[in-house]
């Protein structure tokens, strides 16, 4: 359950940003989590709900945008989507492939209440 650690790191950043912009309540949190980030989006949202209780971000709606696995395939020579179940290039089924995307774990924006 490393999602709890990640949620705590996330909260620290959000609290800092919210403070810097006047300390008003955080209503929404937008994240990008790659398919190969090794982070369960639901577990992360749930963990954030728990760790943010009693803070400026309590009750904030967490939206997770899943970034797809992207690969560079030696077999077809293309860069494109990967198939995480097959561990292969989604285009031609080639494997092994070089991973070029899908490891993202990023906070992209927060919505803050106006006075």
């Amino acid at each position: 359950m490393h999602e709890v650690s990640i949620a705590s790191e996330l909260l620290t950043t959000i609290e800092r940003v919210a403070r810097e912009s006047g300390g008003r309540r955080v209503r929404a949190v937008d994240l990008v989590v790659g398919e190969l980030a090794g982070v369960d989006a639901d577990a992360l949202s749930f963990a954030f709900e728990i760790v943010s209780r009693g803070t400026i971000a309590e009750g904030a709606v967490v939206t997770v945008d899943r970034a797809p696995l992207l690969v560079a395939c030696g077999a077809c020579g293309l860069e494109g989507p990967g198939d995480l179940e097959a561990l292969a290039c989604a285009g031609c089924g080639g494997s092994p492939v070089r991973v070029t995307g899908g490891r993202e774990l990023r906070l992209t924006s927060i919505d803050i209440e106006d006075d």
């Binding site: 950043t13 929404a28 927060i110 919505d111 106006d114």
Partner: peptide
């Protein structure tokens, strides 16, 4: 309500 764009690696501190 207003949106603040951030683009922050969540594990940046650990990194």
């Amino acid at each position: 309500m207003h949106t603040i764009a951030i683009e922050h690696e969540i594990l940046a501190d650990n990194e």
